[in-house]
Design a protein around this nucleic acid. Sequence first.
RNA 1: GGCUGCGUAGCAAAAUGGUUAUGCAGUGGCCUGCAAAGCCAUCUACGGCGGUUCGAUUCCGCCCGCAGCCUCCA
Length: 458
Amino acid sequence: MLKIYNTLTRKKELFQPRVAGKVGLYVCGMTVYDYCHIGHARVMVVFDTVARYFRYQGYELIYVRNITDIDDKIIKRALENGEDYNQLTERFIDAMHEDERALSVLPPDLEPRATQSIDAIIAMVNTLIAKELAYVGTNGDVFYAVTKFKDYGLLSGKNLDDLQAGERVDVDLAKRNPMDFVLWKMAKTNEPAWESPWGLGRPGWHIECSAMSTCCLGNHFDIHGGGMDLQFPHHENEIAQSEGATGEKFVNLWMHNGFVRVDDEKMSKSLGNFFTVREVLKQYQPEIIRFFILSSHYRSPLNYSDEQLNDASAALTRLYTALRGVTIVTDTVIEETYKTRFEQAMNDDFNTPVALAVLFDLARDLNKAKTHEPEKISVLAASLQQLAGLLGILHQDADIFLKGSKANDQKIDQQIQARLDAKKAKDWALADKIRNDLKQQGVILEDSPDGTTSWRRE
RNA sequence: GGCUGCGUAGCAAAAUGGUUAUGCAGUGGCCUGCAAAGCCAUCUACGGCGGUUCGAUUCCGCCCGCAGCCUCCA
């Protein structure tokens, strides 16, 4: 019984697919004018985890995450770089896919791009004009008339009178109402542009997502997701556009993930307090970033700091240490009580912190089994790895994670052997010296009861 | 100003109207040549003030503090 928090009703709801056994999920993806930062990584990881769980539960899922590959910032950045906007977006799309793979984010089923959806966008704008929900402004741009859509503000809990239009932004005189938003923008000279009934121009941001989501999933689909900050105006506008154009309900359930913060402030490009994924990857293994993201609930704020990542690293080390040296049979049936607890956690609005707690309990049981009940080792280890796999973690060999980079492995092994010899000769001083020397290099030795020594990097 | 949401032990982070969260750190023990890892035990909590209740960290009200949205943002 999967329950999901619906922003629209501000309650956890029992998830009921429109069509039994099938789920359509659309998530607002990146605007590709720069590298992904940890905030973007959170969206990717959170909805990847959601997608994995739907599939695990047996749903036939279509997961769509769009790419915004035309907008003001892209044009501006391309101009600054003196490169074609296409070149710029291709570069950052590649980089995004690289980050995605690093974080074990499985690619979405469909990844529509705005520039490849122009026909659908124009068709939707046309419909909105025909229904008198949109109009051509005095500057030639096409605007959506928000007052014509009766449910405007339902998702974000805002009403038009409270929005105090113009308070933070200059009123655009081309609009009838300051809250009206642009659907089609007339091109300035040298800007990328497409033919349309209203002249050469390009789509507004909001209409892209309406067009791409309905194209891929139909007029009415199950779940729409994205960052909290998209709730208003972006998602509000999507509802106005899609429901205005089709006359049908747009989305049943809205999911919004919380922000990544730095020193209690939202991580964002405009504040300049962001860390890109590739930057962080220089210091931490990708799995640590993924664990860090999953260690808090997806709707809660997540504070980014070295301390937090170090904690995540220590926690993952504990899980991998439990798996170390155990041969895992992949098709083992999962231990039932842990499976149930894990599913209960995930069924409760994807409560990954609790799901992780289940993994730690499992790890403790596994550690105990190693000394007391060896016959249980195999099933516990397999359970741990399989359940963790649903979260996209613990998929590598324990030694590979624990040893980190491959550098100097041979030399380390030689020193370990030298220490074992010293131990045999009861030359504790030499044995300890070798261990300390290795410690200086960030290598921790761990002796096993069977006389062998394993090691890991700090 | 309007609208959301949050405030849990040293740090991070969940659940819950009365009973162990979990990870890191601390303390005591077992194990070890000594460590590390592991295991066992254990100390630190629920922003403040009222109310409902046999009982509230959990429900309600007020207050204080913090964040987000109301402009582009994941």
